[in-house]
Write a protein that binds this DNA or RNA. Structure first.
Length: 426
DNA sequence: TCTGGGGTCCTAGGACCC
DNA sequence: TCTGGGGTCCTAGGACCC
């Protein structure tokens, strides 16, 4: 049996842990650049604040109802996430926890006796809340996909479910699937949902009863087949061991204001490259390929928002590296090729791929000594930046003024990861 | 008239997730 | 005026190999 534990309005809940005055009050958290609404408390949902909608469109509701607004504070959310996951590890054992995202984890409940799933789930919910201040919802079912559906049901009517829903018997599963629209299934996005509805398949139950061959031809081959099996209660999406090494690392940002100058773009690209290289070193890897993209601002404003097409290019490095300066150089060269004078840009990004572990980098007989010096240099830089504050030590290309930096006007303090921002209680 | 039968690796693009 | 930032997996098709 499997469970999914999903934090309720996670970012909002994190903010509330340090602002108990906001309990039972509407709260929202904004994306980077204060652009979209990415987390809403139940009270904010009730007021009609939409998910993932632009902030400025919901601003009239927010102002009128005195909704508390925060810019995203990833230091805080990352630390709170770790506390929640650690709690789950204590409760079911490390080997039975698969962290799926910052606010969700799948659990293997094999060790729990079948007649105690509900009791266990309830106690787990209470313990996480007591230890971390974060409330969670729990879905329990034989497969991950059914557990996700159970979790949705638990969240929809918290008073009735007490944030716990089990889909164990066939009867429970049938009822739940009949009430679930296809677009509410984990693994069905908008493209497949439209296709399914056009075929007259509207509920999860309808989809469950389609032949596997049909799913193979119409829903992306093996992916579709797995999905149908999961809905039938046959586990087909396995529990993953933790994916500690990423296969791709990206740092991309919208600018706080439109950018026209090459030197500003260079600062941004150098800054993003430094950030990406840090992430790379943290997982003790090096990258073979770096790619850079920039997104021009669209000339005409349209009410149907779409990102303009991006311009991108990539370079394959002579040998894999994680040293910031060795990555900034090709990144800036790529940018030189992409940049067109006279255009205005609104976003840029750097992606590292072809990622290999440090130990298996192809050796270079002639560079051994400087490689080691570089390694010490980089780890010294990382240590200083970690201990002091971000970017105390940085490369010159990254710039000093950073006029293009994203807006983040409403960020709370990093109460749990910075000494100087520790919460004071009087 | 007629030209095999496997493989691997890489890339681009499409779908999805939170 | 104003719309985020990460990731994953899968498939198809081309290049290349013996």
């Amino acid at each position: 049996m499997k469970a999914i534990v999903d934090c309720n309005s996670f970012y909002c809940s994190c903010e509330r842990v340090f602002r108990p005055d906001l309990l039972n009050k509407p709260v929202v958290v904004l994306s980077n650049n204060d652009g979209c609404i990415i987390s809403r408390s139940d009270e904010a949902k009730k007021l009609g604040v939409g998910m993932a909608g632009p902030y400025f469109l919901a601003k009239h509701i927010i102002d009128k109802n005195d909704v508390a607004v925060f810019s995203s504070n990833y230091h805080l959310y990352g630390d709170m996430s770790m506390r929640v996951m650690d709690t789950l590890r204590v409760l079911v054992g490390e080997e039975n926890v698969e962290v799926y995202s910052v606010d969700e984890a799948f659990l293997n409940l094999e060790k729990i006796p079948a007649d105690q799933y509900e009791k266990f789930a309830m106690e787990m919910r209470e313990t996480v809340e007591m230890w971390t201040g974060i409330s969670v919802s729990v879905g329990v079912a034989p497969t991950k996909t059914l557990a996700k559906i159970a979790n949705h049901i638990a969240k929809k009517d918290k008073a009735k479910t007490k944030c716990v829903t089990l889909l164990i018997t066939e009867e429970e599963q049938r009822k739940a699937l009949q009430l679930t629209r296809v677009n509410g299934i984990w693994g069905v996005g908008s493209a497949y949902a439209n296709k399914l509805i056009n075929c007259g398949i509207t509920s999860a139950w309808d989809l469950r009863n389609m032949p596997e061959e049909w799913a193979h031809t119409n829903m992306g081959g093996v992916v579709g087949v797995r999905l149908i099996k999961e809905l039938r209660g046959e586990p087909s999406i396995v529990m993953n061991k933790e994916l500690d090494t990423k296969k791709m690392i990206a740092t991309t940002r919208m600018f706080g204001k439109p950018v026209t100058e090459l030197h500003e773009l260079k600062e941004a690209i150098a800054t993003y490259t430094s950030r990406a290289a840090e992430k790379l070193r943290r997982q003790q890897c090096a990258a073979n390929t770096i790619s850079v993209f920039i997104v021009p601002k669209e000339e005409s404003y349209s009410s149907n928002f779409r990102h303009g097409p991006s311009v991108s290019s990539y370079a394959t490095l002579q040998s894999a590296t994680s040293f910031t300066h060795e990555l900034i150089k090709p990144a800036v060269e790529l940018l030189d090729d992409l940049f067109e004078k006279g255009r205005t840009y609104k976003k840029a990004g750097v992606m590292l791929s072809g990622i290999v572990p440090d130990e298996s980098i192809q050796g270079n007989l002639f560079a051994t000594e400087s490689k080691n010096t570089n390694r010490f240099l980089m780890s010294a830089v990382d240590n200083v930046n970690f201990a002091m504050r971000d970017d105390v030590v940085k490369f010159c290309t990254s710039g000093v003024n950073k006029d293009w930096k994203m807006r983040q006007e409403l960020r709370s303090e990093r109460h749990s990861t910075r000494w100087e921002e520790l919460k004071e209680v009087n």
